[in-house]
Write a protein that binds this DNA or RNA. Structure first.
Length: 187
DNA sequence: TTTAGAGAACGCG
DNA sequence: CGCGTTCTCTAAA
């Protein structure tokens, strides 16, 4: 407990996160090696890439994530994005470049942005990631930001591991995380 | 709305 | 395992 607050306790301004947004979310589902994949797009770009067992589960997941928003399934409209993601899963070396519509707090945006700079085939620790976003003592908080990521693959939170080398959690299943890292390691 | 607590994909000794 | 840390969410005032 510090008597004098010598840390960077500056309450950085937070991004408005829960802003009401009535925009429709369009999404498409496809089957991949890794599992069923759902890609959702809103104004500005892809707002979610979810992985799961089947379309129904993913649709529930999406509804959870965007409460109150109209959700329109539209495979044809998402055809380009779906193709890119499927190609990335087969060949992660080519990268996955998609316009993203990020909605999050300041720290989350910083972390997610930093994640996009982590090349396929490499991993980073939460501690190192914390250093990169300028919050060296905030590894725990950085992990929170990783855990809050809903754009799988395009924001490669699967490349973040513990300092001990162990895999930490993965929203879409630790096994998938292991698979992704292993596949990328063979580049 | 402000606040206090608890929890979280961490790290170190 | 215990504790320091930082951020987020939620219940309560």
């Amino acid at each position: 407990m510090n008597l004098i607050d010598n840390r960077t306790h500056t309450p950085r301004p937070r991004q408005a996160v829960g802003v009401a947004n009535r925009t429709t979310v369009e999404y498409g589902v496809a089957q991949a090696e890794l599992g069923c994949v759902l890609i959702a797009r809103s104004v500005g770009g892809v707002c979610a890439i979810l992985i799961g067992a089947d379309a129904e589960q993913l649709e529930r997941d999406l509804a959870d994530r965007f409460p109150g928003r109209a959700l329109n399934r539209n495979e044809a409209g998402l055809r380009t994005e779906l193709a890119k993601v499927l190609r990335f899963i087969d060949n992660p070396g080519e990268g996955l470049d998609l316009p993203l519509a990020l909605r999050g707090t300041t720290l989350q945006r910083r972390v997610w942005q930093a994640l996009r700079a982590i090349p396929a085939g490499t991993t980073i620790t939460y501690a190192e990631l914390a250093v990169r976003v300028g919050a060296p003592t905030s590894a725990r908080a950085v992990a929170n930001a990783c855990a809050a990521n809903v754009i799988a693959l395009a924001i490669p939170c699967h490349r973040v591991v513990r300092s001990s080398g162990e895999l930490a959690g993965y929203r879409w299943g630790i096994e998938r995380k292991r698979t992704l890292i292993a596949k990328e390691a063979m580049l």
